[in-house]
């Protein structure tokens, strides 16, 4: 059947496209498994499998991976704690639609501000407040990557919660806080998971704030450590790529586990 043939040939072409575009990811894995230090040229396959790279990566980078994990989780908590109530507020219809529109436009405008502007403005403030080189300082700053996006994403979802549900809870005497915590939030689970996934990835990927708001010695997220590593004209590519692989795990795991949330986040965040 020609139609079946056509669709299978599309699959074949699709596989070739994916293989080409994911080649750098393969190369990262491949290089990370070719451990010997004096090996300048990387083989196409890790024929002589070596975990030296990983050994060195874990010895030197485990602490920095932990720092990144701590900062990212903190950032997710801050992000959801601020974005979820705001999204709910902006989805309610008892304030003027105009002021909601203005707020939403402000959220969109925040997306147009380059990170370097924020870093530049925050540095003197952080210096005054003593937040430079601190984990809380980075958590709060990294949350800025996600908060506007998460508000818009969660709000779009909360707008579709049927009014009758909220009214029913009100008639039963639920307070506003109670209503938000035990009706609105559970119903918005999907949007909250999507928001959490993205705010985690944004914070995990953050490089700019790590670079500008720390001096690179006491609090070192993995991105900053990689940057220093790359800049040092290293020859130990295996260790560097092993670190890169370890630092890619969250993204890869989330892509597999939370695939549908990620797909909805990419489109939802962009179109809204």
């Amino acid at each position: 059947m020609p139609r079946a043939l056509e669709s299978y040939s599309r699959t074949a072409i699709g596989i070739v496209i994916v293989a080409l575009l994911l080649f750098p990811v393969y190369w990262m894995l491949n290089t990370s498994l070719q451990g010997s230090e004096n090996l300048l040229e990387t083989e196409w396959f890790p024929f002589e499998l070596s975990f030296q790279g990983y050994q060195r990566a874990i010895e030197t980078q485990l602490g920095n991976l932990g720092t990144s994990l701590l900062i990212s989780i903190g950032s997710v908590i801050v992000c959801l704690a601020i974005a979820a109530p705001a999204a709910y507020g902006l989805s309610r219809t008892n304030i003027s639609t105009r002021s909601i529109a203005v707020f939403v436009i402000l959220l969109l405008i925040t997306q147009m501000i380059p990170g370097i502007v924020i870093a530049n403005g925050l540095y003197p403030l952080y210096n005054t407040l003593g937040l430079l080189n601190t984990v809380p300082g980075l958590i709060l700053a990294d949350a800025s990557h996600g908060i506007p996006f998460c508000i818009l994403l969660i709000r779009a979802f909360m707008q579709n919660i049927p009014h009758s549900l909220l009214e029913a809870a009100r008639i039963d005497g639920a307070s506003e806080i109670r209503l938000f915590l035990s009706v609105v939030l559970p119903l918005s689970r999907n949007a909250l998971v999507t928001a959490a996934v993205f705010s985690f990835l944004f914070a995990w990927s953050d490089f700019l704030f790590a670079l500008t708001l720390t001096n690179g010695s006491s609090v070192v997220p993995i991105t900053l450590s990689m940057y220093v590593f790359v800049g040092a004209h290293t020859q130990s590519w295996a260790a560097l790529m092993a670190t890169a692989t370890l630092a890619s795990i969250p993204a890869a795991v989330l892509l597999v586990v939370a695939q549908k949330y990620i797909a909805s986040g990419v489109t939802g965040g962009a179109v809204k």
């Binding site: 699959t11 496209i17 994911l22 750098p24 890169a244 993204a251």
Partner: peptide, 27 residues
């Protein structure tokens, strides 16, 4: 256009976008 594995391949293509830029740059 629909074809077998369409969804899987499409989501695999997202990976480069989800990786921290510093990691992609190092690779």
């Amino acid at each position: 256009k629909y074809f077998p594995l369409n969804g899987v391949l499409r989501s695999m293509l997202l990976l480069p976008w989800l990786l921290p830029l510093i990691i992609s740059s190092a690779v």
